[in-house]
Design a protein around this nucleic acid. Structure first.
Length: 699
RNA sequence: GGGCACUUAGCUCAGCUGGUUAGAGCGUCUCGUUUACACCGAGAAGGUCGGGGGUUCGAAUCCCUCAGUGCCCACCA
């Protein structure tokens, strides 16, 4: 290495020497790691820094062990999240979607994406991530675009995709349908209103949906109301009198409220089902902006909560509102923007995933995937067992546009425009529709062969897929286990008939001291760059590894991270001083090798440490590996052996050098920069510590 | 309502395929200006491993139970 030893130079030195690249022609055994693509909505956060550091440590370890390692990097376009971040940004510049128009908006969005990407990319290099940058993928790249089209086309041709008006969870703020898995529930203290409907009284939390009621329902076995079932009554509404039937349905809980419910098929999932069973009409009361429609008369245009407040007086006046009770229940909110979602009817695209999920369950139950922690196997199987059709359309602009074209009532599935006059579907595909293909689309699937034909699977025409798939290692946060992990397992099985990865590592969530997730809105985030600036990259990585335990959340604060950062910074200094003592200040080595009890002891301890660290790395318990090396270097090698060597320095020199060199290699996966710097001080050496061999214990 | 975790020193946490006096970092206290290092060294105090019960020669580690905390899923209007 020519110039100085700062991290930047070291990183460039590695990159220039091609140490990060995977070799498709290599005869060595393969070990592949897939980076979970971070969302391009801001800088990398601590969780990213942790998972990417883990990937890097494993990658470096496997290289030492002689594997042909592929660590493939990439980023995700993150549909809803990116779009709302970007819209907020342009709102500050007094711009909007309406003002810009789709084309211009997309143009600006891509510029913003590049901006954010730069910072992410910079942080990766700062962290020392040894990824194969020549293979980096963005989910909106041409490769994934074709993969997504292939996915859509295949589902379409096989009749698994359908479009139609269905009840969906609608986020009025993001203005798009979202999935159940994208919801959160918040406990709210609200009121339960008892309303008089003809001869019956019923309880509801949502009087504003009254305009959309098309029936009343009771439980079939409820003796109290048997006489009313099937009959029609005239009831008083705020928009005049209206005829309404009483139906019986087992979905009604006779214990709740009065045992009677109003059925609003347009704005409630359960009611929608009841409506289907009894052929009830659907009336839209709430529009896609969360406001009441014209049918609500003078309440039209009001937001849901406003309308609810506003209509209470009139309800009471007309004697419809009988009483109110305090009521605590869970309200569904959008996971991204936290606004209350409205179930409503919308024209959306769906995939029938039942059979695909079944196959995925078989795959998981065959234990070909090792889950860490292992209880995630059960968690995923349970979710897949009760899966419902996947709503894949989003009313957004940022994403893969639905590859369907219309002209004169005709419709065509095509990647690009079929010709003049064809209009493309306005909607884009759910982000996870493309992310679910990540394990394959990153390897060139499905058009990897020379003929440009879709591949049938891991065949001879897909050299990358054949070589690196399934991935040996994948890591992620537990929060996207259904959205992403389950989808990858389903889609891999369906399209290439295999598992996507052999080991699936779910790390814990880093939380603040109150146990809350880190989020921009809470402002409790800790920037990894802050830690790097204060304690250095290597120390930051070490601190993060102590939290990288499968399935265990970690509570951290700036202070607690500073504490660990400082500790490992000190450890780095310790190691630097050890190296100074051993190498810089070395006296002549003894020609005759004399071994005493101390030498035998330290070598035995070293062997023990190598064994433990190797085992811990194999089992992906990085926190234990870090602990072992720390203990050995500081308290055995430095405090004991080096202290005792001072009286017999010349004799001890070969052992000092031997142990130090082994230690540097053991530590390199975790502290790559410092170990490379110190390694370069040895006179007889390979060009880089990265091309050393993992210490052997057979000595 | 269902499921899954967690509860170990003042703080944040390791350890848990059962086995010598239960560990780390930080914090606290005592001592130390030795020629790698004060971003240091030597040493000390501090825990009935949430409560109770069981299995065992032996349990922080396995089983049952209770309590508290957290997370996930479902969701009743």
């Amino acid at each position: 290495m020519k110039s100085g030893f700062d991290a930047k130079n070291i990183y460039k030195f590695w990159e220039d020497n091609g140490y990060f690249g995977a070799d498709i022609k290599s005869k060595k055994p393969t070990y592949s790691l897939l980076m979970p693509p971070p969302n391009l909505t801001g800088e990398l956060h601590l969780g990213h820094a942790m998972q990417h550091s883990v990937l890097d440590a494993v990658a470096r370890f496997k290289r030492f062990q002689g594997f042909n390692v592929l660590l493939l990097p990439g980023v995700d376009h993150a549909g809803i999240q990116f779009e709302s971040t970007f819209d907020k940004k342009i709102a500050r510049e007094k711009l909007s979607k309406q003002k810009l128009g789709r084309e211009k908006w997309l143009e600006e969005a891509w510029k913003f994406k590049e901006e954010v990407y730069k910072s992410v990319s910079h942080t990766w290099r700062f962290l020392g991530i040894s990824a194969d940058w020549s293979r980096e993928v963005f989910t909106l790249d041409e490769g994934p675009r074709k993969a997504v089209f292939f996915e859509f086309k295949t589902f379409w041709d096989r009749g698994l995709i359908y479009k139609g008006p269905y009840i969906v969870q609608w986020c009025p703020k993001d203005n798009t349908a979202i999935e159940n898995a994208e919801l959160e529930y918040e406990e709210r203290k609200e009121k339960l209103y008892f309303l008089k409907y003809g001869p019956l009284t019923l309880a509801t939390a949502r009087p504003e949906t009254k305009f959309g009621d098309t029936a009343m329902a009771v439980h079939p076995d409820d003796k109290r109301y048997k006489q009313y079932v099937g009959k029609e009554f005239e009831i008083e509404t705020l928009a005049g009198k209206k005829k309404m039937k009483v139906v019986s349905d087992k979905a009604v809980d006779p214990e709740f409220g009065t045992g009677v419910i109003k059925v609003t098929p347009g704005h409630d999932f359960a009611d929608y089902e009841i409506g289907k069973r009894h052929n009830l009409p659907i009336v839209q009361v709430i529009d896609k902006h969360g406001r009441l429609t014209d049918i609500a008369g003078k309440y039209a245009g009001m937001k849901v909560l406003e309308a609810r407040e506003a209509m209470l007086g009139e309800l009471e006046e007309k004697g419809i509102l009988v009483k109110t009770e305090d009521y605590v229940h869970n309200v569904a909110v959008c996971e991204r923007c936290k606004s209350v979602v409205e179930p409503l009817i919308s024209e959306e695209w769906f995939v029938k995933v039942g059979e695909i999920a079944k196959e995925a369950v078989h795959e998981i139950n065959s234990d070909k995937i090792k889950f860490l922690p292992k209880n995630y196997k059960k968690i995923l199987v349970e979710w897949l067992d009760s899966i419902h059709d996947w709503c894949i359309s989003r009313s957004l602009w940022w994403g893969h546009r639905i590859p369907v074209w219309y002209k004169d009532g005709e419709m065509k599935v095509s990647l690009d425009s079929p010709g003049k006059g064809w209009e493309q579907d306005e909607q884009v595909l759910d982000t996870w529709f493309s992310s679910g293909l990540w394990p394959m689309s990153t390897l060139g699937w499905p058009f990897a062969n020379a003929q440009g034909e879709p591949s049938k699977g891991k065949g001879e025409f897909d050299p990358d897929l054949a070589k690196f798939f399934p991935w040996d290692f994948e890591i992620t946060a537990p929060e996207i286990k259904y959205l992403w992990i389950a989808r990858m397992i389903m889609l891999s099985k369906y399209f290439v008939d295999d598992i996507p990865f052999k080991t699936m590592f779910f790390h814990g969530m880093l939380r603040d001291l109150e146990g809350r997730k880190f989020s921009k809105s809470l402002g409790n985030g800790i920037d990894p760059q802050y830690l790097i600036d204060n304690w250095g990259v290597d120390a930051t990585r070490m601190a993060l590894y102590t939290y990288a335990i499968p399935g265990r959340d970690g509570r951290v604060s700036k202070a607690s991270l500073d504490e660990r950062g400082k500790n490992f910074r000190n450890f780095g200094t310790k190691l630097r001083n050890v190296a100074r003592y051993v190498i810089d200040l070395k006296s002549e080595s003894s020609k005759v090798k004399t071994i005493n009890a101390d030498d035998i002891w330290i070598e035995a301890e070293l062997i023990k440490t190598i064994k433990k660290v190797t085992k811990n790395l194999e089992s992906l318990e990085l926190h234990l590996a870090v602990d072992e090396i720390y203990e050995f270097v500081w308290h055995q090698f430095a405090d004991k052996y080096i202290e005792q060597s001072k009286g017999r320095r010349v004799e001890a020199q070969p052992t000092l050098e031997y142990v130090l060199k082994e230690v540097l290699i053991l530590l390199h996966p975790f502290m790559p920069f410092l170990t490379e710097e110190l390694y370069q001080k040895f006179e007889i050496k390979r060009k880089s510590i990265m091309i050393e061999d993992w210490p052997s214990t057979s000595k």
